[in-house]
Design a protein around this nucleic acid. Structure first.
Length: 291
DNA sequence: TGTCAGGTTTCGG
DNA sequence: CCGAAACCTGAC
């Protein structure tokens, strides 16, 4: 079975040990959908590009649109060069994490565009994945630039901060974001004005945190999500209700700690790779309780 | 109908 | 500083 879109994916990336389903459709990104043509094919977007990938064995076949073959974009997004097997070995010294890894090996942490990540996680506040994904898609269709993709038709990118800063709160509300609408607009205005995304990667973690916490709709947990999923903070586990549940049930940590106490404990527990440990534990624990 | 979901802001002590 | 309450929305 072959489809003409396969030959569009001219580029090949060695990307072993990739749990694409959990990585692309789990809680770290809301930008991907499975393409019906093939269960290992996904369509997603960065800030300026639509990305189509197909996972075959240890390789990803990929293409970017409208600008083709944007290799640097892909390398950055998938963090080529990060040795996830090495990381799994280190955090696997923790027996709970080790068990989680046996079930869900190959979870990667993507490096998503800053503005898109901040705005997506503002939507995530007190919300669930299904609803977040829906809101993101409505916003894209309303305010995002449109890209034509061969065989797949028109795809809308996530809106730029410029577009959202210009939009009215009432219009943004149409994306079912509720009370978060004004945060999206205000934060977009600040991001547009400050140009934070140009400077973010050269700031240290302390500066990043301080800056993110000044954005409306961004508290500790969302700031941590941004530093992990858009920045390079491998040592942080964003602490939400599931995180507290896990730390309480598995490690006997009280659920009454201050956010800063969790940050400190995490840093010591997982050897600087709390971001990855968290991804495994979350996925494992949520599925465990489901069945 | 009430509760809850991968939080943040606002307000009262 | 610190603990509560309110907050859009849709699914049990």
């Amino acid at each position: 079975m072959s489809h003409p879109i396969f030959k569009e994916l001219k580029n090949k990336l060695y990307y072993p040990n990739f749990n694409h389903k959990v990585t692309l459709l789990g809680g770290q990104s809301f930008s991907w959908d499975i393409v019906n043509i093939d269960e290992n094919m996904y369509l997603g977007w960065t800030d300026k590009y639509v990305v189509v990938i197909r996972v075959v064995g240890d390789y990803i076949y990929w293409q970017t649109y409208p600008s083709l073959n944007s290799e640097s974009v892909i390398s950055r997004y998938f963090r080529v060069g990060v040795d996830s097997v090495h990381i799994e070995n280190i955090i696997g010294e923790d027996e709970h994490v080790k068990l989680a890894i046996t079930k869900f090996s190959g979870i990667k942490i993507l490096k998503q565009p800053l503005n898109l990540t901040i705005l997506s996680f503002i939507i995530s506040a007190n919300n669930n994945i299904k609803a977040i994904r829906r809101s993101v898609r409505i916003l894209s269709n309303m305010f995002g630039d449109v890209v034509d993709v061969p065989y797949l038709g028109s795809v809308s990118l996530f809106p730029t901060v410029e577009a959202l800063a210009k939009a009215s709160i009432d219009d943004i509300r149409k994306a079912k974001v509720g009370f978060r609408a004004k945060y999206l607009k205000e934060t977009s205005e600040i991001l547009l004005r400050s140009g934070l995304s140009e400077r973010f990667d050269v700031m240290n973690q302390e500066e990043q945190l301080k800056t993110l916490l000044q954005l409306p709709g961004v508290g500790n947990k969302i700031a941590d999500c941004v530093m992990v999923f858009a920045g390079d903070a491998m040592d942080i586990t964003p602490m939400d209700v599931w995180g507290k549940r896990i730390l309480k049930d598995l490690y006997g940590i009280p659920d009454t700690w201050k956010y800063e106490q969790y940050r400190e404990w995490i840093r010591k527990q997982w050897g600087g790779y709390g971001a990855y440990a968290g991804q495994y534990l979350f996925e494992w624990y949520r599925n465990k309780n489901r069945s």
